[in-house]
Design a protein around this nucleic acid. Structure first.
Length: 221
DNA sequence: AAGTGACG
DNA sequence: GGCT
């Protein structure tokens, strides 16, 4: 298929190259099926505020789906096969999640993205996340795919050092950010959420981040 | 410090 | 950049 957007899937808008290894895909995801499946997942594994290793309560409420889930407590950051709140395995990753994550990664040149984890972050008004790295995954060859749902927010990407100038990326419902390769370990964060009222999610922003935490080999979606 | 926030 |  020949089009101005050669390596993008047909029917989608543009791909913005933010910096080497960071791409912004405005309105790439169709929120409706994601919203429905998200509701099912968080009904089984409700979001909760985890503690940092130093004992501070994180502002953002989190859950997971997939083969394991990212957790934080006084023992540190890690991936766990079970939800520590319920003792149950994390809910299975919905097909709608893995399909859009795969397509977004492919649009950025990652042809075999097979995430085994989706970390679910819910931002309430006033909540944000300071600059941090996603470095707890085994497979750093694979990118991080981040899907925004609900209220808009300002994501920021710094670089390999925690401090320094950041590049803002304003993300809204259905937007996708992909970062990998030279940016896979870049520090990044989210500015505190401004008040608003989204038709579906009310005064919240949801973020779905897909990672290859343990799978070192591709798995069919 | 995946924290918050005053100050410049 | 300091503080906790």
């Amino acid at each position: 298929m020949s089009s101005p957007n050669g390596d993008l899937l047909e029917g989608f808008s543009e791909r913005v190259d933010v910096m080497p290894g960071v791409w912004f895909l405005p309105r790439f995801a169709e929120p409706e099926s994601l919203n429905s499946d998200l509701a099912d997942v968080v009904a089984r594994a409700p979001v909760r505020q985890m503690k940092t290793p130093r004992g501070f309560l994180m502002g953002v409420a989190m859950s997971n789906c997939g083969q394991c889930g990212w957790v934080s407590d006084r023992r540190g950051y890690r991936y766990a096969e079970h939800d520590p709140d319920s003792g149950e395995p994390w809910p299975e990753m919905p097909r709608s999640f893995s399909l859009v994550a795969l397509a977004a990664a492919k649009a950025c040149g990652f042809d075999a993205f097979a995430p085994d984890v989706c970390l679910i972050n819910r931002y309430a008004v006033g909540k944000g996340m300071g600059a941090h790295q996603d470095r707890d995954e085994q497979d750093l060859e694979q990118p991080i795919v981040s899907i925004s749902l609900g209220l808009p927010a300002r994501f920021f990407m710094v670089g390999p050092e925690r401090r320094g100038r950041s590049i803002p990326i304003d993300v809204a419902d259905g937007d996708v950010v992909v970062f990998g390769g030279p940016a896979r370990l870049h520090y990044h964060g989210v500015r505190p959420l401004k008040p608003g009222d989204h038709a579906v999610h009310g005064a919240s922003r949801w973020n779905l981040t897909f990672r290859c935490a343990r799978s070192l080999q591709p798995v069919a979606p």
